[in-house]
Amino acid sequence: MPAEPHAAPHTHEPDEVPHTHPDPGVDPHAPLAAGARALRVGIGGPVGSGKTALVAALCRALGDELRLAVVTNDIYTTEDADFLLRNGVLPADRIRAVETGCCPHTAIRDDISANLDAVEDLEAALGPLDLVLVESGGDNLTATFSKGLIDRQIFVVDVAGGDKVPRKGGPGVTAADLLVINKIDLAPLVSADLTVMDRDARARRGELPTVFLSLVQDRAASPVADWIRGLVAARVPAA
């Protein structure tokens, strides 16, 4: 595991533009209004990058302190929801599965109606919630969430996908509000250079934060859970 990737601000190699390291604890956006509805956080990323495991970890970490629910968009309808149920991280009534008709990116970006229905139905059935996690179906590097569906989005890539992924960019890597580089415990096995990934992510993402994660070593997904806690805490009361 590398040294803390988001240490104190410092400058980079001379060939790069010097910049301040983004701190995942500092959201560069204006705080979200705490309206009548829950904070909605989208979790996207390629197939197998560990989205569902991250959702499960977040439910374990945040389930006792926040009123939360989950919407899943797996191409196989109930697969992800079943994983969460089997792992006992959330009761069944807090999980909704949305069918995506072979088009997971459509359901979170171009035609978000089924997801909005699911989020609203959860809020209607469970009463006020603090947080709804919307997990996308596994897709590719171009799949991102519509702002009509979520307030903030997390993009999950893993070291086994190759350390070139952050350099390749794509809307998920460059524009997600939080980039999670997952499964760093596997880095030595797949010859992934985390320093390279870190550097490329920073170059791509400017002020937007990136965190490194190993759910084997950190079952509570602490940096991601902390980032979400920060978002919830920073919500300002609706006018």
Partner: peptide
């Protein structure tokens, strides 16, 4: 067909 009215998820 691109009207975002949920049709893509139904066969």
């Amino acid at each position: 067909g691109r009207l975002p009215s949920g049709g893509h998820a139904h066969s």
